[in-house]
Design a protein around this nucleic acid. Sequence first.
RNA 1: GGCGCCGUAGCCAAGUGGUAAGGCACUAGACUGCAAAUCUGGCAUUCGUCGGUUCGAUUCCGACCGGCGCCUCCA
Length: 469
Amino acid sequence: MSEFRLFNTLTRRVEPFQPADGRTVRLYACGPTVYNPAHLGNFRTFLFEDLMRRAMRLYGWDVMQVMNLTDVDDKIIRKAAANGQSITEVTEPFTDLFHQDRRYLRIQDAEVYPKATEHIPEMIALVETLVANGTAYVGEDGSVYFAIDRFADYGRLSQLDKREIKTGARVAQDEYTKENAQDFALWKAAKPEDEATGAAWDSPWGRGRPGWHLECSAMAMKYLGETLDLHAGGIDLIFPHHEDEIAQSEAATGKPFARCWCHGEFLLTDGAKMAKRVGNVATVVDLRAQGIDGAVYRHFVFNAHYRKQLNLLDDSLAQSQAAVRRIGTFARRLAVASGGTPALGDAAQRAEAAFRAALFDDLNAPEALAALFTFISDANRELDAAGDDVAALAEAQRVFGVIDGVLDLVPADAETDAELAAWVEERLGARKAARAARDFAAADAIRAELVARGVTIEDSAAGTTWRAG
RNA sequence: GGCGCCGUAGCCAAGUGGUAAGGCACUAGACUGCAAAUCUGGCAUUCGUCGGUUCGAUUCCGACCGGCGCCUCCA
């Protein structure tokens, strides 16, 4: 079997990847901050990670994936304070929504979804280690900072040494007391709004709360050990988030924090980064409201490589919808076929080989998708030949199962309301009678009625079927 | 200002030092009473522009033009 290759941000190269123990991939993926609905850009990253975990399982490894839920941070506290709520009251509904959304997009469950607020002791212990070994210091107000000049490797992931900080960039506007402007907070001394919203805990340095980066280090190491096989996230997290995770983790353990880092590129909307501040966000709730199947968004995302920016345009989802419809049509046809041809079996084997090769080569989803569509074309042709090779058909079904087990692109049968279904059935009955009487004008008039309500019909030897949309 | 990415047909988008996957759309034909679905064929002598290296570049190098992102809110 070909080796599994991934682009490693640490080396900026595609290189062979395998779990340290040869069996189980210990994967940490940065999750959402649950203070508002995650948008489609966030989900592009989560989908890339879903593809990654499914590809690894196909390869034969087990995956132990941890995705954190950030449920205490500045924005959450601000929102809670503004609403007179506790941070939990803010985060719980959005945590639920996150899970609903990701299920709609068919993102598989991670093994663990740890919450920051449930790992305060682990975080405090990590900070104590850093204070004890001198890489962290306590500020006048009881906040604790990481001293980046005491960690020689600082900046390796983001290649900081090659950068110059922009003149006038946002530096040192922090209201906390730091020795060096670029030192980052491990622990933040509690302020009145922290206490008011339930975002303050006792610590050796007084009341306070964790800094942004701390939770990931503490929870990753708790569930996956001191050295992860792989750490993934959005490209914007390279600096400072992941850089700081590496610093605080490695300064504490003396061991590499992650053997490989993978970052997914951004989703743009009409040429601009999808972000709340830009005001161009779309959410899964929007998708559902438009009746767009999760498989459609999966196709849109997988149609581009994860390391390239992807632009969501007006007709992007319509194009994916058409593509996914073809996959669904094929899936149904393959499922009910009674036999194939020897060439069908050959096509299936070619497809599987091409699919695996593409997927294992740095998750080349567009090429994997091409393998799928080539297979669909080949298989449709063979199915038209109506052969009786049962083994070949079984092979084709097996391969399609393998491919769709990763991509998961067969659209769900549209849930049509009973009222519409009853009406359609009644109309189809009338049309059948008209056709039997060879009154095609009447039959076509009925079809026009159906089309007007978005119903497409298909006549075949087995009878007439229909679908909404 | 520093760092990085990208520019392939109407649209989306892979890819390679030896002459361009796949999808959507469109289009001709087959099938169909007509459609739909499916099949067959057509659809970039060309990969932002200009130079260079090379027997040969879309693929390597340089310049330029255009777009995007990061530089401590950020998937």
